[in-house]
Simulated scan of single mutants.
Amino acid sequence: MEPIQVVGMRPAWGLPSSSPFCLKLETWLRMEKIPYTPIALSKPPRSDTGKVPYLLRADGSTVADSNFIISTMANELNIDLAHGATAEERARTHLILRTLEESLYFVAVWERWQQAEYWPTTREAIFGYLPPILRQLLAKTIRRKMLASLQGQGIARHDPVRIAAIGQADLAALSTLLGERPYFHGDRPGVADASAYGTLANLLGFPHATPLKRAVEGHANLVDFCGRMNKAYWSEVHGD
């Protein structure tokens, strides 16, 4: 099988990608042993959503959104995403994904893009490869759009203490669901584990002691989970 091309964000902070969704997708591809070639985004995304990651096909067509890419690849390659899970286990996976991608994600985005003390680090990771003038202009424009989206989504309408509490509650719930299992999916990792790793590794890798990072560090099983995923799928990056 020829490697597929995956367009995503550039590596940052010792991670393969600064985007939880890009890291999620690449981790899932490694879990399923699907060869791929990562392509660092260097111009506006060509996907129909205008976001990354997206799959770039040989005919020039694209498939966007990590969940849709995964389901598309699974259908094309006859991969059972549930790995024999029961209906209740599949529902559990669905709720884990929603917690990670529709709640905790926005707390993390608010922390990195809204908070003045963390914004320079975010700006450098995402726009640092650009020439100075373009970097300044594009970063300012994209940040304005991101902050507007956080207002529209609703998370930025709360005060910082309440936002931190939302993220902490999400992490506590995830820690409880993981418990003493090696993976959220059970004895072997699944899509929920790829998503959890994409999010948690990004929170732990961010080079500031943010409230979210400290909250993750307060759950030993979540930290151990990331270490397990590092060793299993990203040993060349983390030196395990």
Score class of each variant (00 low, 15 high):
D65W: 01
N78Q: 14
A108D: 03
A108P: 08
I96D: 04
Y105H: 10
A58L: 12
T93E: 02
V63I: 14
I79L: 09
A116R: 08
L104Q: 11
T122E: 08
A82E: 00
I69V: 07
M73W: 03
V109W: 05
A139T: 02
Q115K: 14
T86R: 10
W113N: 03
A108I: 04
T99R: 06
A125I: 04
S61G: 12
Q136S: 11
W119M: 07
R112L: 04
M73S: 10
A125H: 11
L138N: 07
I79P: 10
A108V: 08
L56I: 05
T122G: 12
T122F: 15
D59K: 14
Y54E: 06
S71T: 12
L95Q: 13
M73A: 10
A74Y: 00
S61C: 10
V109Q: 09
E101V: 13
F68P: 11
E88V: 15
A91P: 02
P53G: 12
H94E: 07
Y105L: 06
I79V: 05
N78E: 14
I69C: 05
A64N: 08
R123Q: 14
T62F: 06
D65N: 09
S61Q: 11
N67I: 06
W110Q: 08
A64Y: 06
G84Y: 03
E89G: 04
R90K: 12
A116W: 09
S61H: 09
W119A: 02
H94T: 07
E89S: 08
S61D: 11
H83E: 09
L81W: 05
Q115H: 09
I69K: 09
A125Q: 02
L77S: 05
N78I: 01
A58G: 15
P53H: 13
L130G: 01
A64I: 03
L77M: 08
F127Y: 08
G60D: 14
R92L: 04
I133R: 15
T121K: 06
Y118T: 01
F127C: 00
I96S: 07
P53S: 13
F68R: 03
P120T: 04
D59S: 13
S66P: 08
E76R: 02
R135Y: 10
Y118S: 07
T121C: 03
G128E: 03
E124F: 00
W119T: 04
Q115A: 11
G60N: 15
E117P: 13
G60F: 15
P120A: 01
G84A: 07
V52G: 03
S66A: 11
K51Q: 01
E124R: 14
F106M: 06
R57H: 12
V107R: 02
I70Y: 01
I70C: 04
H83G: 02
L81S: 04
R90H: 13
Y54R: 01
N75P: 11
T99C: 08
A125R: 10
A87K: 09
W113E: 06
K51E: 02
F106P: 05
F127Q: 05
G84K: 00
Q136D: 11
I70W: 00
A91I: 13
I70P: 00
G84I: 04
A64D: 05
W113T: 12
D65I: 01
Y105C: 06
A108S: 13
F106G: 10
F68N: 12
N67K: 15
I96Q: 03
L95T: 15
G128C: 03
N78M: 07
L56E: 15
